[in-house]
Amino acid sequence: MARTWARWLSHALLTALALAWMSPLLWVILLSLTPNEALARGDLAPRMLTTAHYQTLLAVSQAPRWFLNSLLVAGTMTAATLVLSSLAGYALARIPFRGRNGVFLFIVAGLAVPEQAIFLPLHRMFAELELHNTYTALIAPRLAGPFGVFLMTQFFRAVPREMEEAAELDHAGRVRTFLFIMLPLARPALTTLGIFTFLYAWNDFLWPMVSATDPDMYTLTVGLSSLQGNFAQSESLGFVMASAVVASSPMILVYLLFQRYIVRGMALGGVR
């Protein structure tokens, strides 16, 4: 009896804790649906909800453009990372050549270089090339991260040799073996890497903030921070909260759809 009671109590306490944990997010969603008059009065629970803030966001602000920028940047970055990482990872895992270990270490060493330590020289480089406020500047430098190569190398190393030997018997060349044997096998690893890259690209802040100074080139993450200044007034409060919801919902959606892969990716990221 006592044990059942204790179990129900711990269920209830943890559920309450989780709800409290979620409450800031739910509250912001509520604020984004609250009419201005209710926001001005400071009502906690408005009697009526409205989508007016979302309509303003669509009609007046640059948020739709920022949304498309984010989609383009994150999408391209994800596709390119998958291609570059699987090619390099395959070579490091499966093609014997002199100096392979050296190349692998050279690439893995890059994991220790934090973005914050090189964004300044990178910014100078792009300034000299007059490439700031372009999609190239938003995307290209982010393809240098070695995590994807590391992940794919580890994955390809674990694929049994027999898989390739079968292909060899068929006299398949290296490119065909890679495309038709190894890549299909790598689908789970590629999915994990792809989701991670997309999340990371969408939420990227420091580099797009210093590189894109023209509001037309903002990503949603950067654009959202440019709205923060005027959120104290109640006329724009609902609007700012609506833009926060719009900026976050794609990621919440990705997260809900691919939670399994994200959790696995995080575990891999720690145990590298």
Binding site: I95, I107, I118, P121, L122, P146, R174
Partner: peptide
């Protein structure tokens, strides 16, 4: 058929180009 090092180079070159240009070079420049 392709010798290992040439094939490996072709597979590695695209990533190494980005790695060199946007990680190693900024590091040295910094």
């Amino acid at each position: 058929r392709a010798p290992g090092s040439l094939a490996a180079f072709l597979f590695l070159a695209p990533f190494l180009a980005f790695y060199g240009a946007f990680l190693v070079v900024p590091l040295l420049l910094g």
